[in-house]
């Protein structure tokens, strides 16, 4: 029982991070139909920037994190403007190839700046454990969960009530109609990339603190975005959250209960990905076009 609770809690914490990363992916897809294969590198950017500000420069960690996140947002906007904007109107497959290229490029740049050897990172989240429902849980996991949750709430409010948030949803629904009321689609794309970079880098920073190090390994979580969004539905924000939690739990249980030499923790999410594609390709919450009756 104790093991179960432990696995559940850590699964939820990991899942919340996956959900954060997936959320950025969904936003980009919804507003511009771009499937972003470079999501994992956005995580790395956040992590390495924080490593730089906190460990190398020695800033107090909240300030370092904020600076890193702002820089990541700027990088997100730049990527959109320089790399994706010229591709407007090109076929989807070209855009996908470009984002794959982008991920390699970013990886190389990161390697060039910070090197490829793993580095120990500042663990600014508290490392102690507390007992919750009779199981020992790391406080850092709870922090990760709480932070992710806060971001979700903020983003939900943004999409529901703010002018730009509603504009983003309008663009996702019907680009031309949005244009016709003076909504700048380019601005919406820039915001989508900025938010994606922010959520991804927060995810990367949380992972860095939990792993206690930065390395290319963090970008592998970017790959987990695919099972998450396919499960939740490519264009659904609630889907990204639910999908993230389910994949987090699945990974945790598969890794915890099945013999470790099978490595099921790593594989299980992708088995789900295949099954979902077979059974329900639009995911749990993905949009099928609304048909009026």
């Amino acid at each position: 029982m104790e093991k179960f609770i432990q696995l559940t809690l850590s699964g939820i914490a990991n899942g919340a991070i996956f959900a954060l990363v997936a959320l950025g992916f969904v936003l980009i897809y919804k507003s511009s139909d771009v499937i972003n294969f470079a999501q994992g590198e956005l995580l790395l950017i956040g992590a390495y920037l924080t490593y730089t500000t906190v460990e190398m420069i020695g800033l107090w960690w909240p300030i370092g994190v904020v600076i890193a996140v702002v820089l990541a947002a700027i990088i997100g906007v730049l990527v959109e403007q320089l790399v994706l904007r010229p591709l407007i109107g090109e076929p989807t497959i070209s855009v996908i190839m470009v984002t794959i290229g982008l991920s390699l490029l970013l990886r190389a740049i990161i390697g060039g700046i910070w090197g490829v050897t793993p580095r120990t990172a500042p663990q600014f989240l508290p490392r102690d454990t507390i007992t919750l429902f009779g199981a020992n849980v790391g406080v850092d996991r709870l922090w990760a969960f709480a932070l992710a949750l806060t971001l979700f709430v903020l983003l939900t409010l943004f999409f529901r009530y703010s002018r730009e948030g509603i504009a983003m949803r309008a663009v996702a629904d019907d680009q031309q109609a949005a244009l016709s009321m003076g909504i700048s689609v380019k601005r919406v794309w820039a915001i989508a990339w900025a938010i994606a970079a922010v959520t991804a880098s927060v995810g990367g920073i949380l992972l860095m603190s939990i792993f206690g190090g930065v390395s290319g390994q963090i970008a592998r979580v970017g790959l987990l975005v695919f099972p998450v969004v396919i499960l939740g539905g490519l264009d659904s924000i609630p889907g990204a959250i639910v999908g993230g939690l389910i994949i987090g739990l699945l990974q945790s249980f598969a890794g915890g209960y099945l013999p470790p030499e099978l490595g099921m923790g790593e594989v299980a999410p992708f088995i789900v990905l295949l099954l979902i594609l077979l059974v329900r390709p639009y995911g749990l919450f993905g949009q099928r076009i609304i048909e009026r009756v």
Binding site: D173, D174, A177
Partner: peptide
Amino acid sequence: FQVLEGRRVFEHLTVEENLRAGAY
């Protein structure tokens, strides 16, 4: 302001959110 052919409401937004988008 052009009202496009074929109505083109934002189908997944509520009526009021559509109007908010119009006031962008």
